[in-house]
Amino acid sequence: MNQDLLGRVALITGAGAGIGRETARQMGERGAIVCVNDLKEELVAPVVDEIRARGGQAFAIVQNIASREGIREAIQRSFDLGGRRFDILVNNAAWVRYQSIPEIAPETVDRMLDVGFKSVIWSLQEAVAVMDPERGGAIVNVASVAALRSAANSVVYSGIKSGVLGITRAAAAELGARNIRVNAVCPSAVPTEGTQRNRNAERDANRVARTPLGRLGTVEDIAQSICFLASDHAGFVTAQALTVDGGITLTNI
């Protein structure tokens, strides 16, 4: 794999599993100094060990980023561990529950907003403070095709992911003058530990049948797109929402 992220300091939130974990692996292979964030040491440590075993550089950031103080601590530690640099932020962390409208509970809304929406705002604020004003940086927010095409029982999730796209566009408009690019990826449902509870063989087969490329996406597919948006290959790309879904969102086959 190429070294297009060589020497860049990257923080990936929610990197103990799924898309975040694969993004951390790929960024490590591309030469980044990877700060792997998640809630628990047992989630973070294996990812850090794997990156290091492959010859990469990685650090554990065990931190709850569901508060302004938590995200501040995570970014500051990444800045310090990276040798007074901070280049890439991937807002991947999420806590998700699907509920019908009558079932939506205040505690569910609060937690989903804290992890999936508010943390994106606070992380932008903190990242801007430590990114070099001349060198700039790249921020990639993990949204979802649910921001573009929603299903039943997803009012809170779809609302939050739609909001993430709004944050992405507004931040890109504001931060372009500082050479900070802000983009989002919108994955379709990919098999991960977190999506397992909402998947079954029949549902997966239906998705495959409706997808022009004839398969489900993978965490590798999504991570490659994130790495592209974080790299200089996307140096003139900002305010974009890259849909990574095999074509299912915008086609009807």
Rank of each mutant, 00 (worst) to 15 (best):
V155P: 01
R135S: 12
R178A: 12
G159R: 11
E134W: 05
L124C: 10
E174S: 14
V140E: 03
R135A: 15
V237E: 06
N198M: 08
A230F: 02
E202R: 01
Q224R: 15
S123L: 06
A184M: 03
G194W: 10
A201W: 02
R203L: 10
R149I: 08
A147Y: 00
T211Y: 03
P133H: 06
F228P: 07
Q240H: 15
T211A: 04
V219F: 02
A223E: 12
E134F: 10
I180M: 09
V156W: 05
T195D: 01
E174G: 08
P187I: 06
V185K: 07
H233S: 14
F236A: 08
A170C: 14
S144V: 10
R199E: 10
P187S: 03
N141S: 06
P191A: 12
S123M: 04
R149V: 02
I139Q: 06
N141W: 01
D132P: 10
S188G: 02
T218E: 03
V120I: 14
H233A: 15
H233P: 04
G166H: 02
Q224S: 15
G166K: 03
A152H: 11
K118G: 04
P212K: 02
R210Q: 14
S231H: 05
D221V: 00
G136L: 07
D204W: 02
M131L: 11
T192L: 08
D132T: 08
V145F: 08
I121F: 11
W122Y: 12
N141I: 03
N183P: 02
V145S: 08
G159E: 11
L229Y: 02
P212W: 06
D204M: 03
R207D: 13
K161D: 07
Q240G: 09
L213H: 00
F236T: 04
S188L: 00
S154M: 15
V120P: 01
R207S: 12
L229V: 06
I167F: 07
N179R: 12
D221E: 02
A239V: 07
V219Q: 05
L148N: 10
A173W: 07
V237I: 15
I222Y: 01
R169E: 10
E220A: 14
E193I: 09
I121T: 06
F236V: 09
L165P: 00
T218N: 09
L165F: 04
T218R: 09
F228I: 02
I180V: 12
R210A: 13
D204L: 03
R178M: 14
N179Y: 08
V164C: 05
V130T: 11
S119L: 13
A230P: 07
A173V: 13
R181F: 09
V130C: 11
G176E: 00
P212M: 09
A189D: 07
S188I: 00
A171E: 04
G214V: 11
R135K: 13
A205P: 06
A173G: 14
K118D: 11
W122T: 09
K161Y: 09
Q125M: 10
C186D: 00
V156Y: 01
N206D: 13
L213S: 06
A223C: 13
S231D: 00
R210P: 01
A147E: 06
A172P: 12
